[in-house]
């Protein structure tokens, strides 16, 4: 069942007198429960694409439909995880997750403590953000988005600032959430291993103007191992696509 549909999406930025095309003719449909990763070199518009889906950027041409309704602005239907956790520093973990919802209500309280368990933060309910590590803080922001039962969770290089060790732990946590809740995920990254490890489909993007080059379905069963030969094969394929992207760039630069 199609959850998200993007058709003929164009987005350009005006810098002074020149117009820069950030995204050109993007077509993509995402099924319910899919885990999509979007990968591409910097400047390919992958974050812009995510912001448009979130409704944070509305100055574009073409249509973005979520559940057959046009996306016109940000809402809790589209949970968004930024690169940095963006927690409210004056609220404890528990209150950050609840944010504008009343923790006094039994239902909210229960759901919050369930989510704290899901993101493995038991014992930290009353900690302030300054007391958390980067990975823990990012898990709080994931729980905060999940509390609102989003139709889709959009993640913009959420683990980019974390060290390799914490990063692989976070990938486990995210896959665990995906398997338990079947939340549809769109995950932007520039890490090839991460993209293949998590995704049901990997979307590879070209830069200047940002277009979709290739969509590769990943049919490996979970849990995946990054050292498996099947994994490596897909990795080679994605890498070769990337090399083509670079060649194009260079030949364009020569012209």
């Amino acid at each position: 069942m199609t959850l998200l549909q993007i058709r003929k999406l164009d987005r350009s930025f005006q810098t002074g007198k020149s117009v820069m095309k950030a995204l050109e003719r993007i077509d993509l449909s995402v099924n319910k429960g899919e885990f999509i990763t979007v990968i591409g070199p910097s400047g390919c518009g992958k974050s812009t694409l995510l912001k448009i889906i979130a409704g944070l950027d509305t100055r574009h041409e073409g249509a973005v439909m979520l559940d057959n309704q046009k996306v016109s602005g940000p809402s809790i239907d589209k949970g968004f995880i930024f690169q940095e956790p963006r927690l409210f520093p004056w609220l404890t973990v528990e209150k950050n997750i609840a944010a504008n919802l009343p923790l006094k209500e039994k239902e909210t309280k229960e759901k919050v403590s369930e989510l704290i368990k899901l993101v493995r933060l038991e014992g930290f309910e009353n900690a302030y953000p300054k007391e958390l590590s980067g990975g823990m803080a990012q898990r709080v922001s994931i729980a905060r988005a999940l509390l609102r039962n989003p139709k889709v969770l959009l993640l913009d290089e959420p683990f980019g600032a974390l060290d390799a060790f914490t990063r692989s732990h976070m990938q486990e946590v995210l896959l665990d959430i995906w398997e338990k809740n079947r939340t549809t995920m769109i995950f932007v990254t520039h890490d090839i291993d991460e993209a293949i490890y998590l995704a049901s489909r990997v979307v590879i993007m070209n830069p200047r103007p940002g277009t979709i080059r290739e969509v590769i379905p990943i049919e490996l069963p979970h849990p995946r191992r990054k050292t498996d030969s099947a994994f490596q094969k897909i990795r080679q394929r994605v890498l070769s696509e990337f090399e083509k992207v670079e060649e194009n760039e260079q030949s364009e630069a020569f012209q």
Partner: peptide, 21 residues
């Protein structure tokens, strides 16, 4: 202003935006 984006996504009411942010 980054926290304002969060408030928008979480659908804070005008009142909550003042009192909570």
């Amino acid at each position: 202003s980054k926290l304002f984006d969060v408030a928008k996504i979480l659908e804070f009411s005008k009142w909550k935006q003042i009192t909570k942010l």
